[in-house]
Design a protein around this nucleic acid. Sequence first.
RNA 1: GCGCCCGUAGCUCAGUCGGAUAGAGCGACCGCCUUCUAAGCGGUAGGUCAGUGGUUCGAAUCCACUCGGGCGCACCA
Length: 651
Amino acid sequence: MSLLTLLRSRFDSVLRSMADDTGPLLEMIRPAQDARFGDYQANFAMSLSKQLGKPPREIAAEVVSRLQLDDLCEAPEVAGPGFINLKFRSEFIAARITEIAGDDRLGVTPVDNPRHVIVDFSSPNVAKPMHVGHLRSTVIGDAICRTLRFAGHRVTSDNHIGDWGTQFGMIIYGYRHFRNDAAYAAEPVAELSRLYKLVNQLSDYHTAVQKLPVLKTVLEKAEKGVQEFQATLDAGDKKAQKQLAQLQRQAESARTELRACESTVANLQSDASLLAIADAHPNIARLAREETAKLHAGDADNQKLWDEFLPACLQALQRIYDRLGIQFDLSLGESFYNPMLPEVVESLKSKQLSTVSDGAVCVFIEGNRAPFIVQKSDGAYTYATTDLATIRYRHETLHADELLYVVDNRQSEHFQLLFQTAQHWGFEKLRMRHISFGTVMGADGKPYKTRSGDNVGLESLIDEAISRARRIIDENDNRRESPALSEEQRARVAEIVGIGGIKYADLHHNRDSDYTFDWDKMLATTGDTAAYMQYAYARICGIFRKLQIERTAVRSGCAVILSCSEERALALQLLQFDDAIRSVLSEYRPHLLTAWLFETADKFSKFYDRCSVQDAETEGLQKSRLVLCDLMARSLHTGLSLLGIETAEVM
RNA sequence: GCGCCCGUAGCUCAGUCGGAUAGAGCGACCGCCUUCUAAGCGGUAGGUCAGUGGUUCGAAUCCACUCGGGCGCACCA
């Protein structure tokens, strides 16, 4: 049982006689903020004071007098306005460590009510190379799956691949008109990706050409508006000043948009051969859309091309997942749900959930102005329809209890509408949750892009991380009197550290926040990084190597002695792994696990610094320290593995 | 115009659905290797928690407004 659960159950029996609902009060028992206040603190007395009409300190004293805690804690102390400070007895901590020393689960008890959770993450489009925008979903989703599984839930990871959207029309169009056969034969995915980009570029060009005069007019109007307003402006009128600023912002954004448009046009026109192609395909955007429509309508030729393209595309994706060490139980793409879509719309209609508006079949959710469009006016279905079909399939066929969607926060409105529609549609019992996350930013404060403005490819990102890690490893090992690593080991460690660095950097931020991508911080050997944790792990392995002791030899029958504050702090920290896992899963926030890992590694480093294992005063103390070391190593290894991060025995 | 999110140390970020003197890492400065991996450890400096008002025993946290920034908003996914 976790320490918190244990404490709370003891408090619960006392609080029951004082309050109807003890839940919120028990929530207020937490790890102490400051070591001076002990290990844990209970803060409920103050909020209980009004309810009971007694001073908080009196309440706290009464609770303390009735508490049965002697076997766990020193005598509780009432402090300040009514805090109850708790300190575990060192004998209790030592006994618990001995108990879990041989436990594969490191003291983490499986959940009481396992659920079947389907986690929908990564979800790239095929034919477009994966880029840094897919990183967070992939890494966070994987960490959530692993943690849920470890906690005892049944988990199905599902990659909802975009394999049926408009990009296929573009590829088909490109393939028919611009294909380079030799390139296609050699590297089909690269060639398809080139074709996609080309068609996309040509479409954008024509759109930009059309938009140009409109944007010019908009800008002129906006600028004129600013001038006129300025002319009549009363300098003392704050409201007018604000209005002016707004008009100026509008003009500025019109200017930005116009410039972007102009540069799209200029870029293409600067390339004569490209311009010739563009001129020869003036309606490329519409024609590409029509290819998509034909595919969806069951056109045999397009279907044949799709069947031909898809395996190669999936294989390319798989290569990246293999490098990242990520596996999916299912990869049911959009195409899988295509046959179910008409029925979904029929069902919504028959339940009178939908209305037709401007020719489109829509579900209107109260409080939302925007409709949830399930069938466009041209008869085509949307991703809303697919998402509904997916929900039904996951619940009725896969028997999921809970669905998690690891998707960036710009889609939050879509998911709100989706979940509410699904609830009205009859899935009230199914838990559905959008696990949203922020954007990966560059040093310039804008979404992370290459210098030329393209998305950063995931493959090159991985390569870069590994090669940077390799440089650090070489430098360190070469500095030693006799290098500890072979060429093969260095290459392997570089992968572990490089990929671990990418993942850790992502996971250690609260997922809601945008975060700034920074190579130097990501692969720093100091501070809160994967490398620091991995290094701590390798140092422990070094102790066992040096003393020529098998790690498994200390997992049973060794008494734990906590002879100094560093040992005690480390031991207590290790007992909190269970609570760390719980906290991660309560709102699906992996950064709470990175925080625990860092604190643990930090406490270990202090222990390592001041408590020699080799030169322990007694044999018993050495054994005890070996127990702590082994448990520490396994906690680090397990904790990192829940984040999808590997460790090396030697670094 | 409507809606959602954000503003915390020089930088990057935490801050556990209201709790004690607001934390960490990096950077800066000062120390520590004849001793298990110094990719380590100890210490110092650094804050008007964007601003104003409110709610109460108590606010970075809740409410209102203001300022500043980001992102969505009808047939793309």
